[in-house]
Write a protein that binds this DNA or RNA. Structure first.
Lengths: 198, 198
DNA sequence: ACCGAAGTGGGACAGTTGTCCCAGTCGGTT
DNA sequence: AACCGACTGGGACAACTGTCCCACTTCGGT
């Protein structure tokens, strides 16, 4: 096996772990399964990480960062706010459809974090980032559409995140594309009503 | 130990299992943990159930039935449809607040079911029941308010379920009551717009 | 060329898990 | 009272898990 510095090995193991979790779930993501996916020996695992928990914690915190651009709206001038918001939601939906297992993995990681008091902050931080990202998108969208939010953007953003989560969960269960699009439309509707569209 | 027929033992074990899952998560719900919670010996478990999987499957299918009445709206005549729907959502939210671990357990069971192809139908059936229940409530609500849905009720119901899920997930993470109420209000808004309020 | 540190491999360990077995005991029917 | 099948308890097993250890190899700086 070629020699790899510990830092790179950590990254490689986290990538492998995410793949395993996506494919088979967190419960199946044993040290051996992760190491096999990464093509390493078992000892390398505990050379790079003190424990499996340490890897999972880092998996949770790092993976959120990559989610970033998915929800960012197309900023096409001339569109109404409603169109922009709905397009953003539909874009997220396409992202979900293209890699359902990934979103399922994220959900699973969140739920895992919720289980222990010391990990709960990880989930909270994850969501704080989502909300911040959503808030930025919403502000941008309003600007383009020449509208302004009549409710604090953070509040609108939180509602958007909630709607997105609901969309994700229900679609993962019934895989009903039309229904999901209806959810997106309804969500866009509700959100737009929190703005003053001059 | 007093003698208990197998059928009762199955019920007792399922109750115990739900308690364990609520408290510590599905991963911690080992045969031994469940049996300890139920105050039985380990052998009784495999006398009542062929395997742990069999118990979990039955846990998923039976537990949904008890959820039923939580979302049913107060049917106070004279209220607008918007008020009725929002009240229903807030009632669900109070239910969630009063026993968060239970909803967390339901979420976990759903995700578990999503993981294997042969269990996926269990999750789908679970959601079908949710949607049916929601549809009945929505129909009743519209009747009371003297309104009518302009979109098929099942479609409205699916959106309601999605919104409810989103509300649940986000509140479980950040425990922000005000934000959750804002989600409920926005959801009621979106849903009401799918009706013709004469 | 050499040497300490960084990285590697294989094997081992103890703890936990699902499942099973078997000898026993109870309760109701005959 | 006898008996048969339903139920019980304890212990065992093999598989799997996270973690550790130790001998070994390779690399970068001297």
């Amino acid at each position: 096996m070629t020699r790899i510095p510990a830092a790179e090995r950590r990254a490689a193991l986290i990538d492998a772990a995410l793949r395993v979790v996506s494919r088979h779930g967190l419960a199946q993501a044993t040290t051996r399964a992760i190491v096999a996916e990464a093509g390493m020996s078992l000892a390398s695992f505990h050379y790079a990480f003190a424990s499996r928990d340490e890897l999972v914690d880092e998996l949770i915190t790092t993976v959120v960062g990559r989610e970033q651009q998915a929800v960012l709206p197309d900023l096409i001038p001339g569109q109404t706010l409603h169109e922009i918001v709905e397009a953003g939601l539909l874009r997220y939906f396409e992202h979900l459809r293209s890699d359902p297992e990934h979103e399922q993995a994220m959900l699973e990681l969140t739920q895992y974090a919720l289980r222990s008091p010391e990990r709960h902050p990880l989930a909270a931080a994850q969501y704080a980032k989502y909300i911040e990202l959503a808030a930025r998108s919403l502000e941008l969208g309003a600007e383009i559409a020449g509208a302004s939010w009549t409710v604090p953007v953070e509040r609108v953003a939180r509602v958007l995140v909630a709607f997105t989560d609901g969309l994700t969960l229900t679609w993962l269960v019934d895989r009903d594309d039309d229904a999901a699009r209806a959810v997106a439309a309804a969500a866009a509707d509700a959100l737009t009503r929190m703005a003053d569209t001059r």
